[in-house]
Design a protein around this nucleic acid. Sequence first.
DNA 1: CTCCGTGCAAACCTTTTGCAAGGTC
DNA 2: GACCTTGCAAAAGGTTTGCACGGAG
Lengths: 165, 165
Amino acid sequence: MREVLTANSLKLALNRRNLRMTPQRETILQVFQELPPGEHLSVEELHDWLEEQGKNISLSTVYRTVKLMVRIGVLRELELAEGHKHYELNYSGLKHHHHLVCLQCHQTIEFKDSSILKISQQQARDENVELLDCQLTLHAVCLEAVRQGWPLLLPRNWSCPRYGD
Amino acid sequence: MREVLTANSLKLALNRRNLRMTPQRETILQVFQELPPGEHLSVEELHDWLEEQGKNISLSTVYRTVKLMVRIGVLRELELAEGHKHYELNYSGLKHHHHLVCLQCHQTIEFKDSSILKISQQQARDENVELLDCQLTLHAVCLEAVRQGWPLLLPRNWSCPRYGD
DNA sequence: CTCCGTGCAAACCTTTTGCAAGGTC
DNA sequence: GACCTTGCAAAAGGTTTGCACGGAG
């Protein structure tokens, strides 16, 4: 997995592939760099956020840019069972982490575990592939929701009492 | 995580929740039960397969059934970075496994690692939630693809030479 | 100056939903 | 008999694409 890029090294990475640095790409990179740790954005959230900041970038460009950044390893695509894909910077080092998602209220908790990366790297070596990302995703519901009859006896918008702890 | 259900215990699980067993639900369960180990289906593949077998079930019903089976824990939803979600029976025991996906050719390899389940169970205990599923997904590309300039210098339909090993 | 990237609108595709008819408990 | 489930068609997302214009290398 690669190191996180600065605007400048993103430019270099792009130019190496005959691609161009643009204000839009730099702006989007910056949004992710300034995102609080543990936050991740869907394309739509990213687009909305850009609009709020007065940086109007068309939705198609946001889609294209995010997809490109995933392909060159700058962003990590998260599938957190929320219907939308979410994106965050692809950290390879200490900040590498995994997610626990509540299927009832969609709150997500990050956690770290160094052995997962080791297991993944070993697996990648065994299979002779280059590892780009490894994500352990836990699907769970809080015990209170289970007691109340999850998954079918619970109102659609019931929120876990533990939310916000 | 729950044990795999037979048609009969699926009926019981449904009735317990005021839901009904139907021929469609039984047929779909059967397809998954007869699926070779390591195979998983998207909704569309499942629907096509049913049609080939002369068991016509409407696409909406397939969607509804699969979603229901995920909710009651019978199926496991896999996000293998292929655009479609894939489904397989949710095994909790020895057959529990994880996936390595090649982002270039989409071939997926299953692997097992008992420590992942332990890590996940511990994490669930720490967070006081009921664990429903844990999936470690590795995104990778084969070394040959990297050598040839993945991700941007490779034709869209380039196929890994290691495919089919 | 070449060719890549953007914005817009339309197209696409997967997934969901409203409703009437049929089936299960 | 009550009410859950199905099938159909329409709607509703989210994501992609064609094209002309503007901008980066």
